[in-house]
Design a protein around this nucleic acid. Sequence first.
DNA 1: CGCGAGCTTGACGTTGTTCAACTAGAGTGG
DNA 2: CCACTCTAGTTGAACAACGTCAAGCTCGCG
Lengths: 226, 226
Amino acid sequence: MNTDNNSSPCLGYLSCFNALSKQELDFINSKTRHLFFKKGETICKQGAYAPYIVFLTRGLVKVYLEVDRDKHISTHLTKSGDFISFSSVFNEDAYKISATALNDSDVCMIDREAVIKLLKENGDFSYRIVSRNCLIENRLLSIIGNLSHKQMAGKLATTIIYLNDFGYDNIFGSLTRKEIAEFANISIESTVKLLKDFENRGILSLEGKNITINNREILQKISDKG
Amino acid sequence: MNTDNNSSPCLGYLSCFNALSKQELDFINSKTRHLFFKKGETICKQGAYAPYIVFLTRGLVKVYLEVDRDKHISTHLTKSGDFISFSSVFNEDAYKISATALNDSDVCMIDREAVIKLLKENGDFSYRIVSRNCLIENRLLSIIGNLSHKQMAGKLATTIIYLNDFGYDNIFGSLTRKEIAEFANISIESTVKLLKDFENRGILSLEGKNITINNREILQKISDKG
DNA sequence: CGCGAGCTTGACGTTGTTCAACTAGAGTGG
DNA sequence: CCACTCTAGTTGAACAACGTCAAGCTCGCG
């Protein structure tokens, strides 16, 4: 982990921050620290003191819950231009989630008090935050739907579609089988077996880490019906 | 379902709405419809067009996902003074969840455009909404944690603690076994058997619908360790 | 060339759902 | 006031799904 203290206005061009005036942007930039994380490094640790709101400007990050010492479940990916942890910072002083860099990443740590001040003063800014948080809520609800009734094949199909559509170049190259399993919330072994099964049925192709979807419709059907 | 069109300022004394000026309150009240729902009636239907933000002023409501024709999973309860559906209404025009009255309930249906207007204009109001949404997000994360790794006993214990601590008088009197099962996300039969098991171990007492916790510590331990 | 992490495979046991049957109580109509 | 029915609750047995274990494989890297 490396500290880089130039306060370039890296937030300026990004949607939520568009609502800010030049003055407000300067203010928030003065309260921001810019950090670099190498692939594999932990950016947020669930349970740790959380004085910052974390924002990703470059890279790829997985966000996950640590439900037990060795049991993780990934909820979503984050790419440049989105918050890694927003709500974690609000109601209590601890991160509710952990986040790890899947690729080298640049991150802004923004002082939470500064964000709170802006939220209270700038309605347009907070409106955008509310709207963005609602998207996350939808995502979490859909995860709950998946976990609660789908069986393995459906969970994995849903996961592959999510990852594939996330819009990051060669996403599967950045993920191990274990990480895919943690998104699908099934065991590594089941993940491997099912991937092979999908391949045998012509639904997708495996080539090392890479996964190519050949029959999107069937995959979607498996995802839908559980 | 019964319409009651007097526009009493029923929102005035409630936390999020405290941020509003007299003028803003009048405005929001003029955009609000007051409805009565009998026990058992559906207040929101997942997938339906959602032009209103729904707010509960009296009663008890369960909020749940319909993951399949006959498979429901309850995410949380709502009592007077909280929103039933807030985020559902934001990003897309459909409710992401369903809600049913467990007891007779009074509800406000607030025009979403009016709320959006206030969010943009009143930073203090939107700040409170952001903060409240973060609580929901935490709740959803904890549900994901439960679903993803706990086994039956842990799920049920967690559920009983949640329901018991919700702070509604004689809560279990308002819930069927099926509804408890839908909170715990296990089958009705397993719910019944486990409840009896807990009773045999002296952890709780069953008397008809009523459930009394006798040994909170053990229940908490079962909930924690899964 | 050898080591280790990640990956793959099959066998086995556990968990929890499903099914089927039965009971209790609440509401209904004769 | 008593059968009758319908729903909610209860119980046990059988089965399927899935995780765990154990073993072997492969590939990249020192």
